[in-house]
Amino acid sequence: MKKQVTLSKEFLKGVWDNNPVLKQLLGLCPTLAVTVSAINGLAMGLAATFVLVMASLLISTIRKIIPPQVRIASFIVIIATFVTIVDLVMKAKFPDLSKALGPFIPLIVVNCVILGRQEAFASKNNPGRAFLDAIGMGAGFTIALLVLGGIREIIGSRTFFGLQIMPDQFEPWLIMILPAGAFLTLGLLLGAVNVYADRKKRLEHESLVAHYKRVGREELIEELEVK
C-alpha cells in the first residue's frame, strides 16, 4: 500500500520541494529561451500549465484503459492535441504574444515536465490528485519562469511587465536578454535555492539534535548521523 500524502502537500510539492525548474531541472529549453521578459515567462508558464492540467486530468481518467505498451504514444498524442489548441487560440486571440513566444508554444509538446508528470503521476493516480499535482507543478514552473523573466527584464531592459522601473542612469546589461544571460541567471538562481535549502536542512537537523538532547534520547542522534 502506498503512503498517502495530504492533498495540500500534493499541490505544494510542485511549487517548492519538487519545483520542476529549480529542483528537477526539467523543461529547461523553454525556461532558458523565452524568459527575456516577465510577460513572456508568465505566458509560457500559463500555457504549459494549461496543457499540463488538461493532459493530467484526461490521462488519469482513462489511465486504466490505456495499455502500458502504448502509453507514451497515447500521452504524446493527447499532449500534442492540447498544445495545438493553445497555439491556435493564442494565434487567434493574442497574436502579439504568439509572435513573441514564436516556436516555443508548439515545442511545449516535448516539454519534459509535462510528459514526466503523466508518466510519473497522472497515469498512477486518480483525477483529483492528478489535477492537484498538475496545478502545483504548473504553478512551480510558472513562478520559476516569471522570476527568471522578471530578473532578466529588469536588468536587461530596465522594465518590469513593460513599465520602466530602473532609472535612466542605469545602463541596461544587454547580456541579460541574450541567451548567455539566461544561463547565468538560472545558474545563480539555482545556487541561491540550494544555499537556502541546505541551510534549512541543517537548521532542522540541529533543532532535532537539540530536542533529542533535551529529552535525553542521545541514541537517536547517532541514528540521525547514520542517515
Binding site: 495499455p67 505498451q69 502504448v70 497515447s74 493527447i78 500534442a80 487567434a92
Partner: peptide, 29 residues
C-alpha cells in the same frame, strides 16, 4: 486489439477536436 483500438480512438478524438478548434480559429487568424 486493445492497443490498436485505444490509440486509434485517441487519434480520432484528437483529430476531431482539432478540426473543430481550427475551424473556429483559422478565419480569426
Amino acid at each position: 486489439v486493445q492497443m490498436l483500438l485505444v490509440l486509434t480512438s485517441i487519434g480520432i478524438i484528437s483529430g476531431g477536436l482539432l478540426a473543430v478548434v481550427s475551424g473556429w480559429a483559422d478565419p480569426l487568424i
